[in-house]
């Protein structure tokens, strides 16, 4: 089997002894045109993988910052086809792997087959569905695999080793370790339990492990790089997008913030 874009990205990192950075933004926040520009900027700044959130009316696993981003995006009333068009545009100009981050219902309504086919065609590389656990994923995984999309699952501090085994078995691309019990959002301190979680996963799987939820500054990222392969930053970036809003300075403002996060060498 050929190496997927995500595998290649992590293999390159490993080869050079570096660690990864995975930024998250919500599609359509503040509008779809800015989303394309933001994606290209994040690729230029050296993102290992980019997570693109599909907005949902009832984001039960998200904190207030991403809830508000979803609300703003949904007010721009667009369809998944519009998101795929943005991703195709992005893919013509950048090689950085891109995964969708979504709740199940919008994808279920679109149709699993149609979604996976069009996502792959647009140049997306994988998908993480927040409210889809391995036990419920048989139908989706078989369709996604056939299309050549990686499926990424969440692992939580509350997951037993038995569950981690199941998560590892079903995941491809990488495993997303949730840093704490809680919803997405910024936090001052990284929980101690996340290191233990990553080590437990590493014993069971050779897949790269990314750590997210509550990661919002450079110190936390460097901390994560000590024991995991990549750090995911979502709410902190989305908050910056919210603060600047629909403004000509948006892309450069977010770029400055991202550079600040990555100031030290990886």
């Amino acid at each position: 089997m050929t190496e997927s874009r995500i595998e290649r990205a992590f293999n390159l990192l490993r080869g050079s002894g570096q660690k990864g950075f995975i930024p998250f933004i919500t599609a359509g926040d503040p509008n779809l045109e800015s989303t394309l520009e933001l994606l290209l900027m994040l690729a230029e700044e050296g993102a290992t993988v980019i997570e693109l959130g599909i907005p949902f009316s009832d984001p039960m696993a998200d904190g207030v910052v991403i809830q508000r981003a979803s609300d703003r995006a949904l007010r721009n009333f667009f369809h998944l086809e519009d998101v795929f068009r943005i991703v195709s545009n992005f893919r013509r100009r950048a090689e950085t792997p891109l995964i969708f981050f979504s709740y199940l219902n919008p994808i279920f309504q679109y149709g699993f087959e149609r979604f996976c086919k069009e996502a792959k065609l647009s140049g997306a590389d994988g998908i993480l569905i927040t409210d889809l656990i391995p036990e419920e994923s048989d139908d989706f995984i078989s369709v996604a695999r056939k299309s050549g999309l990686d499926v990424i699952f969440l692992a939580a501090p509350t997951s037993s080793d038995e569950r981690l085994k199941m998560i590892a078995k079903r995941s491809s691309g990488f495993i997303y370790a949730v840093s704490r019990t809680g919803v997405t959002g910024m936090s001052k301190n990284l929980s101690q339990e996340v290191k233990d979680l990553v080590l437990r996963i590493k014993k069971l799987s050779s897949l790269p492990v990314a750590v997210g939820f509550g990661v919002s500054n450079r110190e936390q990222i460097e901390d994560i790089w000590q024991f995991a392969d990549a750090a995911v930053v979502g709410s902190a970036i989305v908050k910056r997008i919210e603060d600047i809003g629909s403004d000509s300075r948006l892309v450069e403002g977010v770029r400055d913030f991202v550079r600040g996060l990555l100031r030290n060498k990886r």
Binding site: D131, P157, T158, S159, V178
Partner: peptide, 12 residues
Amino acid sequence: GGRFVPETLVSA
């Protein structure tokens, strides 16, 4: 029916 939740809740 089923169980469509974030992983964190499954153990509970």
